[in-house]
Amino acid sequence: MSTTPLLKVENLKKYFPVKKGMFGKTVGYVKAVDDVSFFVNEGETLGIVGESGCGKSTTGRVLMRLLEPTDGQIEFDGKDLASLSQEEMRKTRRDIQMVFQDPYASLNPRHTIGKILEEPLIVHGVSDAKERKKKVREFLEIVGLNAYHAKRYPHQFSGGQRQRIGIARALMTNPKLIIADEPVSALDVSIQAQVLNLMQDLQKEFNLTYIFIAHDLGVVRHISDRVAVMYLGKMVEVADSEQLYGKPLHPYTQALLSAVPVPDPDYQKEQIIIEGDIPNPADPPTGCTFHTRCPFKMDICTKVTPQLAEQTNGHSVACHLYTTQVDNDIKQLEGSL
C-alpha cells in the first residue's frame, strides 16, 4: 500500500439554502457539510460513519459533484474537482464511481442487466459493441453472478444480487476511487458479509481505493483502514481503524462505540448513553456542535468551535478535552478545588 493521497479534501462545505415565502427569500442555510478536510491514500479504505443526517452521504455526493460544493477543494489525482467544468467533471467520473445504498432503486427497472452494465462503457467511449458485451460478461462473473444474467431485468434479482450488479457497474470503467454510500445497509446481515468480502476481494484485485460511508460501526471496522466520524456536518475524529476502535478520544465516538452490541451475553460494559436528538442542522448549536449532548461539556464548548487537531500519529480529534489550553484550565480548576 502506497501512501500518496489519491484524494485530498480541504475545507469542503455544502450549504443548502432554506427558502421561505412567495419569492423564495433565503432565510438561512442547512450546513450539511461544514468545513470538512480529509485525505484518502491510494489503495486504502476510508470509512465515514455518523448518524443519519450528519452529512456523510452528502459528503460522498459532493465529492462526485452530484451536488455542487459550496466551497472548498477536492484534489483528486492532481486535479481540483471542485473547479472543473461540468463536461470535464463528467469525463473524470470514469475514475470515480459510486455504489448506492438502495439496490432496489439504483438500477433502472426498464433496462436489462446487460444494458445497465454496458452503459458506462458507451458513455466513456468504448465503441466496439463486441468488446463491451465481453466485458459485461466478464464482470458479471467477477462479482459472482453468471454471464447469462445479462438478459434479465433488475426485478428478477434479490437485493444482494442487485448490489453485486451495482458494484459491477461501478467497476466497468476501471475507476481508481469508489465511493460506497451505505452499500450494505439495505441488505440482510448474512448477505452484508458476502458483499463486504466481495468488495475487499475486488479492492485487492483492482487496487481500488474506497470511501465507505455507513452508519454501522461493525461493518466499517471490518472493511476500513482508517475511519472518520462525522457529527452534524463536521468531522469530529479521524484515526486508523484500530486506534479509533481501541482508544476513541471524542466523547461522541466513545458513545457510538459503546452502543455497538458485543456477541457475549455475560460481557458487562459501561454504556455511554447520549441524550437528546441530533440538533437541527439549520440552527446548529454554537461552539462545539456536540455540546448539547456531551457528558463532558465545559464552558468553552458552548463558545469556541474546536478544530480537528492531530493528537497522536494519524489520530485527529476535534474536542476541547484534548486541547492544551483546556488541559491547563482543568488543572487550574483542580488546583482550586
Binding site: R61, M64, L66, R90, K91, T92, R93, R94, Q97, M98, F100, Q101, D102, A105, S106, L107, N108, P109, E119, P120, V123, H124, G166, R169, T173
Partner: peptide
C-alpha cells in the same frame, strides 16, 4: 429523484442520454 438517475449521473452520462 430516483437513485438510478443519480447513478446515471455518477457514471458520467450526459443530460440528453
Amino acid at each position: 429523484e430516483d437513485e438510478y438517475i443519480m447513478a446515471a449521473k455518477a457514471i458520467g452520462m450526459k443530460d440528453a442520454r
